[in-house]
Design a protein around this nucleic acid. Sequence first.
DNA 1: TTGAATTTTCAAAAATAAGTGAAAGTAAAT
DNA 2: ATTTACTTTCACTTATTTTTGAAAATTCAA
Lengths: 168, 168
Amino acid sequence: MKLEEAQQQFIASWGAFGSHWGINRTMAQIHALLMISADPLSQDDIMEKLSISRGNVNMNIRDLIDWGLVSRIIIPGERKEFFSAEKDIWKVATQIVKERKKRELDPMLRLFDQLEEVEGDKKDKNIKQFTETVSNIRKFGLQADKMLEMMIKADENWFLGNLLKMFK
Amino acid sequence: MKLEEAQQQFIASWGAFGSHWGINRTMAQIHALLMISADPLSQDDIMEKLSISRGNVNMNIRDLIDWGLVSRIIIPGERKEFFSAEKDIWKVATQIVKERKKRELDPMLRLFDQLEEVEGDKKDKNIKQFTETVSNIRKFGLQADKMLEMMIKADENWFLGNLLKMFK
DNA sequence: TTGAATTTTCAAAAATAAGTGAAAGTAAAT
DNA sequence: ATTTACTTTCACTTATTTTTGAAAATTCAA
C-alpha cells in the first residue's frame, strides 16, 4: 500500500472510531493527521489536507488543545502558528481517560451518592429495586474510578507489566 | 429525595451519559427505566413513562435486545410482550465491552495490520512517523484487546480482586 | 376464517450537530 | 500609525440523527 493511501485510511478510520466515542469526526481526523505528521502543521495545511474550512479547523484545534492532545508550536521566523499532537499513545490514552473521568464519571458518582438516599419504606419493591440498582452501579463506578485513577498516575511499563502478570 | 424525583434524575443522567458514548439518549433512558423497574414493562408503559412514541420505543427496544441488555418476557395470560433489563451491572458492563470490541476495536486492529505494511523508503521521515504511530497504536490496542477479552470471560470477583491486589 | 390486539416498519418531520465563510479581532512588520 | 498576515468568532447553512405516527404486518382467540 502506498503511503498516501495508508494515511487516508488511517485518518478515516480514526475519525470513524472517534465518532463512536462522542468525539466529532473532524476533531478525530485532525488529531489523526497530526499524529502521523513528522512536522507540525499550520491551520492552512490542515484545511488543505482534510478539505475543511478555516473556522472548522480553528474550533476543533481549540478543543483538541483543551483536551490536552495537541499543542501550539511557535516556529522561530514564522509568522503562523503550528500544531503538533502528542504521539506517545500511552499519554494520549491517559489524557483522554483523565478528561472523560473528570467530565463524566466523577459528576455521575456525585449524583449517585445523593440518589441512594431516597426516602420511603425500604421494603417497597420499587424503592428496593431502585436503591439496589443505584448502589450496585455506584460500587462498580467506584472500582472503575480507582482503576482509572491509578492508570492516570501510573507509568506505562508498570501498568502493562502488572496487567500481563494478572492475565497470565 | 422522593422516589419519583430520584428515578427521573437517574433516567436523565443515564441518558446523558449514554449520549457521550455513542448511544442514543432514548435508548439509554429506556435501559435506565428498565433497570430500576421491579417488574417487566410493556411498550405502552415505556411510552407513557418516558413520553415517547410507539415507533421509537419499538426501535430502541430492538437495539437493546441486539446489544443483549434487555430481554422479552412473556407473562402467561397476557397478550402483550413485556421487557426486562439485565440488572447485574457487571454483566451489563461485560456485555457492552464485548459488543463494542467486536464492532469497533477488532475491525480497527485488522486494518492496522495492513497499514503497517506501507511501501517505500523506511528512512523517509513521513513513512517513519506513519509506521511508528500505527505500530504503537496497534500494540496498545492489542494489549487492550487482551485485557478486555479477559474481562469478558472473567468472573467479577476474580477480576476485581486481582485489580485490587494490583493497586494495593 | 375473521377481527381485534399488538408489533413492526418506514417516509416524512423535527431536532440536533457540524461546517462554512465573511467579518471582526489581534498582533507583528514596516 | 498603517498595512499586512494571520486568528477567532458567529450567524447562517448543510448534514446527520432522532422521532413521530399512520399504515402494514403479525399474532392470537373466538
